[in-house]
Design a protein around this nucleic acid. Structure first.
Lengths: 238, 238
DNA sequence: TGGGAAGGTTTGATATAGTAAATCATAAAA
DNA sequence: TTTTATGATTTACTATATCAAACCTTCCCA
């Protein structure tokens, strides 16, 4: 039976005077980041084209870009899928994320102004409201805005693309974690980051950034995967 | 007058049973990495398609991938170019490269075997021969092979794509440096890296990796850019 | 002589069609 | 029952045609 992919790719506002390809890219990226496309899902160009009611051409270009950012894996069969998370990969992604983001934060420190700190505080306030409203998708987006703003203060910044790529790879799994880990205590490490920025204290900034990341997805994500492994035992991923 | 882009994109062996798009990607990537397309060059889809005697479709996909890796910059006008280097960007790229590669090296250390060290030594020997023959392009490729091999020993490695992206961004400039800096002394820091690996010494490995990078493009590249700035004075890059 | 508008030209973006490759299903043989 | 082979179907890949947007040139008017 032709069991079509019943993927619900959430629509996003159609910015006029952007190309279709860009729009598809943003839409797929958002869908992957928020976990709307579960890891392991296999995709087809035509399936996506039909689902989005577009010709395959702009789809192909958007997919190529996402595969370069390792949000989509292209197999030798020319089949595509959202990569599944493994324990080893999670450890590496989190470790790399800490290295990259502490590096970026430190490199932004010389460019921090008081007025910029105010801007970060306003993002942080919005995050508090998202937590209160239990809006996890919005919390994810705001959290990224917070970090992206900080790292982009550096006018010569070149690490943001690598960081975004890591976010893309952790995104789908983050959703799974959010769904399985009920007791989701959000200890707000951003307050510590803000204090370190105010004090222009590089060491404190690094420490706070590291804590922010490791106490987020790392701890609960590891739990989830260990749990899954002990259920399945061997999975034959040679 | 219709001054066509007289770009000489070096051909590379045509691996059968690869798609045209992959072939174009490899070819453009190689051309950029070895500096065959000078920074600042502006590209057109049709120009590339004509030059490579292909239809625009596979070109577009290859270009999209390379733009995602920041080897090609796409302007708002939809024009494309190879980004030019600036002093600030060079500093950031080198700093990020050091951070990423020391991270990757450290994360590979637990997986190092004696037989693998032998393999690295054979690459290093080939590099010595390339230096003796003054074959700088080959030296660049072998140097990348050396580092890529080391970082890829880690089976869960996820930092290689980010590192390759930095290499791509430094590649065109490396060529410029090679051409302008006559006295090109290659002090081989790989010997130090190999010693650190044999001793399974993480600190020594980090120090050797850092020296390998900063004594390469960093020092002579900075000189070249400072020299260029003092010649042009203001360049109006607002 | 300089500024601006209008038409022509180049280029990018997308849809479509045709071809090749891979997968799936069915059936025959061991 | 399992394996293999073959035909059918789905899918990806590339070339091409069409349209739209950006650009360049030229000419007119101040």
């Amino acid at each position: 039976m032709g069991k079509k992919q019943d993927l619900k790719i959430p629509d996003i506002p159609l910015d006029k005077d952007r190309t279709t390809q860009e729009h598809v890219y943003s839409r797929l990226r958002h869908a992957i980041m928020t976990g709307a496309i579960p890891p392991g899902t296999s995709l087809t160009m035509r399936g996506l084209a039909d689902g989005l009611e577009l010709s395959p051409t702009p789809i192909r270009e958007a997919v190529r870009r996402l595969s370069s950012e390792h949000a989509i894996r292209i197999l030798e069969n020319r089949r595509m899928q959202i990569p599944a998370m493994t324990l080893g990969r999670l450890e590496e992604l989190v470790a790399l994320r800490i290295t990259l983001e502490t590096h970026a934060a430190e490199r932004s420190l010389p460019y921090i102004s008081d007025i910029f700190i105010e801007k970060l505080i306003s993002i942080d306030d919005a995050m508090d409201r998202a937590i209160a409203g239990n809006d996890l998708d919005r919390l994810t987006i705001l959290n990224q805005d917070f970090h992206r703003s900080l790292y982009s203060v550096n006018p010569n910044q070149v690490s943001m693309p690598a960081i975004e790529s890591i976010w893309l790879q952790l995104g789908p799994f983050q959703r799974q974690v959010n769904e399985h880990v009920k007791e989701f205590y959000k200890i707000d490490r951003h307050k510590e980051i803000l204090e370190a920025l105010k004090a222009r204290d590089a060491e404190a900034l690094t420490a706070a950034t590291e804590r922010d990341i490791s106490e987020g997805i790392s701890r609960s994500g590891r739990q989830l995967l260990i749990q899954a492994v002990s259920e399945h035992q061997a999975d034959g991923t040679a």
